[in-house]
Design a protein around this nucleic acid. Structure first.
Lengths: 117, 117
DNA sequence: CAACAATATATCGTTGTGCGATATATATGT
DNA sequence: ACATATATATCGCACAACGATATATTGTTG
């Protein structure tokens, strides 16, 4: 995603995407980025300038925690969910579903009202 | 919606909601606000400080057009979709669906991976 | 082996949305 | 008369996502 509408769409829901990716196991930033990209078939290109500040934010909020790994030449910062993080996934997922339902409720009749393309 | 996550969620998709509301007939601002609120069962409270700048933005983008009505004591600005607006609904709805599918693809396995609440 | 691409993390300034506060004015109900 | 609902508008704040840029290591290819 790169155009304006698409970019703005993602606001707020990127947190949930990253938390979801971590739900299936610890990962470091670059891995998260690749996972999101492949899971969305290239639709969501989580930029580095978005990802790292986002991870720092989530860590500051104590929903994830990190540990540096210097065992290899390339240093990696591994992230994992905290208990609060798992709770947040559940609560934000519920809110997300509600919100999607709202949009759908407005969008479906709108598309029907529109003259056939 | 008033908390942070919820507020951020709406970014970008509010345009689509407003355009959708207008797809089923011309409306003025206050009417749009009420329609969104009731259609979302009170979940989405489109604030006046959000709505009017948004309408001006959409008009500047030529996806809606307006006409003042002074026939009653309370002056109202009626908005209707333009042809470009109808095209935008269709294209943004398609993007919205794709994006929702991406989130779902990450969220569903994540919730399953989470220990039972 | 030098050039280049991929891996890996980080920060900075810009852009633009959504919000709360505030202002203004009319209509309705009590 | 006073409060509440109707109706539009603007201002400044907060902050997320981005592009650019920086830095350093590893792998590939000519």
């Amino acid at each position: 995603m790169s155009e304006r509408f698409e970019r703005e769409l993602m606001r707020g829901s990127l947190d949930l995407m990253v938390l979801s990716v971590l739900a299936d196991g610890s990962k470091y930033g670059y891995l998260i980025q690749k996972r999101v990209r492949e899971a969305s078939d290239g639709t969501v290109k989580l930029q580095a300038g978005t990802l790292y500040p986002l991870l720092h934010r989530l860590e500051a909020a104590s929903v994830i925690k990190s540990k540096w790994d210097h065992s290899t030449g390339r240093k990696r910062k591994w992230y994992e969910l905290t208990a609060a993080g798992r709770r947040r996934i559940r609560s934000q997922a519920a809110q997300w579903d509600r919100y999607v339902a709202c949009i759908q409720q407005l969008l479906t009749p709108a598309l029907q009202a529109l003259p056939a393309k």
